[in-house]
Design a binder for these strands. Structure first.
Lengths: 274, 274
DNA sequence: TATTACCACTGGATATATCCAGTCATGTCA
DNA sequence: TGACATGACTGGATATATCCAGTGGTAATA
């Protein structure tokens, strides 16, 4: 309906956006929480371009009618979308689609494979190393493993549309993931996180990440088409499962131009004095 | 009181934690939202060590009694704390304090000054450049300014406990922040964001950030005590205010060892198929 | 003694209900 | 004509209420 003073044009646009959002509606049979379904529906509308750039979303109360859920559920979904940088809220006015939300999101805790597909890019990989060995303290300690414990190391060159973009090395407790080393890691769509989930029911839910930079090694430069001296963006992460046990340690070396990281931020109310 | 089977010891510990959290309670007179006050109270208890490492928090329903607010308000605060990496939730069990939540958080949208103080470090700065000039397109376009618009550029070497850690360069529309150039930017605790807020009532609420790496220039190497060839972590950000107008563009060059970025992550439910 | 059934408790999800402070078009009044 | 009051609408905050699926201790049972 829009505010009392709406012109016909504005009302029409509003209805159009409402239809765009409602597109793939939600279902009570779907095991996912309602707020996730709403989140997905709105995100799909944005990413498939059904909502115009800088478009205004239907109001929360309209969305309640469109989706047939309570306002709390709508707000939960909207809060996530704002937090992820897809939407922006303007109190008293409405929610607006944020433009220029592009680039490679920090894909930690998500698999490279997933992130690539979400960006409509074709993920690929080349196996560099896959073996089990007795790891040094720098590796075993962060994983809460006893000194000398056997560790499965998996090193891969990651490609996007056949272009090398990042070198990824993972360490996992060998005892916890038996048989993982026997898989065909040369396969283009073999995802470590998918295997962990499906074979071992291990799901990382939390991560501690450190971002920095360093010079490339000669081997890395060769793999990433860089000419030394050159810099790489490094991302080191330890992931934990729901029971707070370390799952894996990941070290990434990013090609600075081909695979920078982008990040959307929105304040949570923390910006205080001083 | 804790679960029916609690031992005396556990009950005592639980009561202790409850007392620790309740410490600086909340007030209806405080203009801040209740969930922010709860958030702050729990965060203070964690950071001041009143909650033991890996300590278990009182349950949501206990916190309802402790703070005298509804469960929704408690959950709102808890969700933020989980999202920020301070807490971890274990359904069926409770909330636990996350260990090893340290390092320099991504301080985008927050001032360097703030972040430093929050880490109990002494922030400092050395003015490198402060002038108004007609900026090239690479600067004016992201700020939605017409070509040839006058831009205020502020370049500073940032110090932590007198050690140079990052070079920060900011660009702002000169017309929007008249007089900003006349301030004494050599002062150690002069904060750009504080001045924006207090003098012009401008508050960035959203940011689009790109992280990458590159080689240091000679001048930067000199300022950061690096020896070329060396790499720096770069952080480029455009900040927007509540009305979606660009506020400033910031470019940071981080010393890779002295000022890496750390980031806590927790899944929001996005980790899906494939 | 080992196993199992029970049950209190936990976080998670959701509905319904107010109240508030902004925003903005409209229409009235000086 | 221009300033102003009105009122519909917005997101934000909060309270109270259920229901659910895990978790883990206790007590009954084999």
């Amino acid at each position: 309906m829009g505010p009392m003073g709406s012109t016909d044009l504005e009302t029409a646009a509003s209805d159009e956006n409402a239809a765009a959002v409602a597109h793939g509606s939600i279902s009570r049979e779907d095991p996912r929480p309602l707020h996730r379904q709403v989140h997905g529906a709105i995100l799909a509308a944005i990413e498939e371009g059904r909502l115009p750039r800088s478009g205004k979303l239907p109001s929360e109360r309209e969305l309640v009618d469109i989706f047939g859920v309570s306002r709390i559920t709508i707000r939960h979904a909207m809060r996530d979308l704002v937090q992820q940088g897809f939407l922006q809220s303007q109190p008293g006015k409405g929610f607006y689609v944020v433009e220029g939300h592009q680039g490679f999101e920090l894909h930690l805790l998500k698999s490279f494979t997933n992130t690539a597909l979400a960006n409509n890019r074709r993920p690929g990989q080349r196996l560099l190393d896959a073996r089990i060995y007795r790891a040094p303290l720098e590796i075993t300690r962060p994983l809460f493993l006893p000194p000398g414990a056997e560790v499965f190391v998996l090193s891969r060159l990651r490609l996007l549309d056949d272009v090398p973009v990042v070198i990824q090395t993972d360490w996992l407790s060998a005892a916890r993931v038996p048989g993982l080393i026997d898989l065909d890691w040369t396969s283009d769509n073999r995802s470590l996180y998918a295997e962990l989930r499906e074979r071992f029911h291990i799901r990382p839910v939390r991560g501690q990440t450190t971002l920095s930079a360093r010079l490339v090694t000669e081997r890395e430069a060769d793999l990433l088409d860089l000419v030394p001296p050159a810099a790489v963006l490094t991302v080191d992460q330890i992931a934990f499962d729901g029971r707070n046990r370390p799952v894996n340690m990941t070290m990434l070396a990013h090609h600075p131009e081909r695979y920078p990281l982008t990040l959307a931020q929105s304040e949570t109310g923390d910006i205080e004095q001083i």
